[in-house]
């Protein structure tokens, strides 16, 4: 087993502690909040994720363009993306947490999330077991690390501005409605 240097591990732990505390304060490590989102009765999860996406996008693209970071893009493989998304969504509706929020729910003391966590480890083991046979299907039609700006030959900035404006407009409308 490969082990990274201690500094990197401590950095990961610190990032995780901040992430876990944010998820807990955002109430998204709660079964009720996630199910209310999935049943379209509450938008807390969408607000958290939309804001994280838009705020994150501004900084990440700025960091990459100034040479202080590089993109880390997952490949566009339609079979694996569509198949994985359907399996993932179905499982999430049953367990009531996503992977990160399962761990946050465990930290919050939720016993059902512990069962979910063991299920997640089992799912990962089943993936390892099935991987050699699935590999040709998973990698079929690989289009590589495609981004929306690259595919349309545009700058990322109009996209980022669009995201930020959409989220900001949603937040303002939400505030005015109260």
């Amino acid at each position: 087993m490969r082990i990274e240097p201690a500094g990197k591990l401590i950095l990961g732990l610190g990032t995780g502690v901040a992430f876990g505390a944010l998820l807990q304060k955002g109430r998204v490590g709660k079964y009720e909040v996630i199910l209310d989102q999935l049943l379209l009765r509450d938008a807390t999860v969408a607000k958290v994720m939309g804001t994280a996406m838009a705020v994150g996008a501004v900084g990440v693209h700025a960091l990459v363009q100034s040479g202080r970071a590089t993109y880390d893009i997952k490949p566009l493989r339609l079979v694996s993306i569509l198949g994985g998304a359907v399996l993932f969504g179905s499982g999430m509706a049953v367990t009531g947490y996503c992977p990160g929020t399962t761990i946050a729910a465990v930290g919050e003391g939720r016993r059902d999330a512990v069962a979910g966590l063991l299920g997640m480890l089992t799912g990962a083991a089943l993936f390892v077991r099935a991987y050699p046979r699935m590999k040709p299907v998973l990698e079929a039609g690989d289009r590589g690390k495609v981004t929306l700006p690259k595919a349309t030959r545009t700058s990322p900035w109009p996209w980022v501005a669009g995201l930020a404006t959409t989220v900001l407009a949603f937040a303002v409308a939400d505030r005015l409605r109260r």
């Binding site: 993932f88 367990t95 059902d112 299920g119 799912g123």
Partner: peptide
Amino acid sequence: AFIGGALMMFG
């Protein structure tokens, strides 16, 4: 929760 977690992680 266990079955859902397994399906979700596999996906």
